[in-house]
Design a protein around this nucleic acid. Structure first.
Length: 427
RNA sequence: GUGGGCGUAGCUCAGGUGGUUAGAGCACCAGGUUGUGGCCCUGGGGGUCGGGGGUUCGAGUCCCCUCGCUCACCCCA
């Protein structure tokens, strides 16, 4: 028990956990780069107004904020999109379109922590700006699926459910609800969790006629083919069909399902919206995203169509754990150098330095100890090999190279060892 | 903010109806002699039993308060 505990909702990343976080981030980065996205970052602290302007004052309750010595209202960023919008808006004239950027930001939200949700966490954020068509939506959806696939998850583990706000709006209009206010989406979004009854009450309370309310509340129950068969969906139906064909072309069709029930509670979405969930439905959403064509204009830039998603590391780790897919810990170093006695230490350091100079990860015992003990250390550090340096080796001008998994020992020069570690065992 | 569950060693947990210096396994450290590991054997360090108060001759155990963690709700950008 130390004098200070961790703050609520924060995590210590001991090497075991850090390895896993780094592994995930490496995979995300690899996928983003493979899809042609460029990495960016922004300050962790931003003006509080950057977030309140977009989401309203009540969001302040969920933001870590403080006043600095210059009387500035500062926020620890709770999301990345406003920073992205600010950066792009500041240079929108000079940036060639489409803009394909990604980031793996550290974010903070002042919420009650619970399973898969912390106050400090990381997200993969991936956005395309400057493309109005579903081509961009399909590209980011495919990248999102691959970001999870790269972590060892497959179509049995998770799925992506998508819909389109415009399609939804057409459906609502057809039911007699024209230009719905944002709260209508929020209520619709909650039907799967709380059922139709409270939704109907909310709709009626909000001034929607009872017959319209019943029809739109039906959204979550409606079959998707039946939904697509509804009249007056026009171009929106065609857009969904096109999106579908692209997703198939990307090879992610098995992961994706059209689901008119996907609404997203958030007000700023304007088009295609999607979420990724574990198939068993045990965990909260792993990822949420969609099209937000008006946001950049709202933060003061020029109009620029945009689509993107945020994919959190917390739920992903939960899912990997639940499916027993967490990666095995990787070895700390390849080779462990063992001076047989204190007199051999200088020579051991020189050999190790040569190995490190050749780009090989190597370690040595920093205290004098028996060869037996040192080998035990080497095995614990899961090194591939140990190199023994004692009187014999120094006199003979060679080294004893011991493979730790087989116990095979050979006598080699430093150069031979380097070649062996880099190119593998010669045939 | 609301409700449930839980707080004993670094970790996982034992500790009937209150009773001597609070235990185990794993982990950690040191040995098992002088140049060969994972096993095994021996030994060791480490806990003001979350904190405070009360009842009692006596509290890890009972009562009250408090703090923390956790799960769910609200929210989820």
């Amino acid at each position: 028990m130390t004098r200070f505990d961790r703050l609520p909702g924060t995590r210590d990343f001991y090497p075991d956990e850090m390895r896993i976080r780094r592994w995930i981030e490496d995979r995300w980065r690899e996928v983003a780069l493979r899809y042609g996205f460029e990495e960016y970052d922004a300050p962790v602290i931003e003006p509080l107004g950057l977030f309140t302007d977009k989401s309203g004052e009540e969001i302040v309750e969920q933001i870590y904020s403080f006043v600095d010595r210059g009387d500035r209202h500062i926020a620890l960023r709770p999301e990345m999109t406003p920073s992205l919008a600010r950066m792009v808006a500041a240079r929108s004239q000079g940036l060639s379109k489409p803009i394909k950027w990604f980031s793996i930001p550290r974010l903070f939200r002042y919420e009650r922590p619970q399973r898969g949700r912390f106050r400090e966490f990381w997200q993969l954020n991936l956005d395309i700006l400057g493309v109005a068509g579903v081509e961009a939506d399909a590209e980011i959806m495919a990248a999102g699926v691959d970001a999870l696939r790269a972590c060892g998850l497959n179509a049995d583990d998770f799925e992506l459910r998508y819909s389109d706000r415009r399609l939804l709006d057409a459906f609502l209009a057809e039911a007699g609800v024209e230009e719905p206010e944002p709260w209508v989406y929020t209520v619709l979004d909650k039907i799967p969790r709380f059922g139709i009854k409270p939704a109907l009450e909310s709709f009626v309370k909000g001034g929607i006629p009872a017959d319209s309310a019943e029809r739109i509340a039906d959204l979550q129950m409606i079959d998707r083919d039946e939904f697509m068969g509804l009249p007056n969906l026009g171009e929106h139906r065609d857009r969904m069909a096109q999106l579908r064909s692209y997703l198939d072309a990307y090879g992610v069709g098995d992961f994706c399902r059209f689901d008119p029930g996907v609404v997203r509670g958030l007000a700023y979405y304007t088009g295609v919206v999607f979420e990724m969930y574990d198939r068993k439905g045990e965990l909260r959403a792993i990822c949420g995203g969609g099209r937000y064509d008006d946001l950049l204009e709202n933060v003061g830039g020029q109009t620029l169509p945009a689509a993107g998603f945020g994919l959190g590391e917390a739920v992903l780790i939960e899912l990997l754990e639940a499916r027993d897919r967490l990666p095995a810990p990787s070895s700390r170093c390849e080779v462990f150098v063992i001076p047989v006695s204190a007199d051999d230490r200088r020579a051991a350091i020189e050999v190790l330095t040569q190995l490190r100079g050749a780009g090989i990860a190597g370690d040595l015992a920093l205290t004098d100890q028996s060869v037996a003990k040192a080998l035990k250390r080497a095995a614990q550090a899961s090194a591939r090999a140990a190199i023994l340096i004692g009187e014999r080796e120094r006199k003979g001008g060679h080294l004893t190279f011991r493979e730790l998994d087989t116990g095979n020992e050979t006598t080699l020069s430093v150069e031979q060892i380097i070649a062996r570690l880099i190119y593998g065992t010669p045939a």
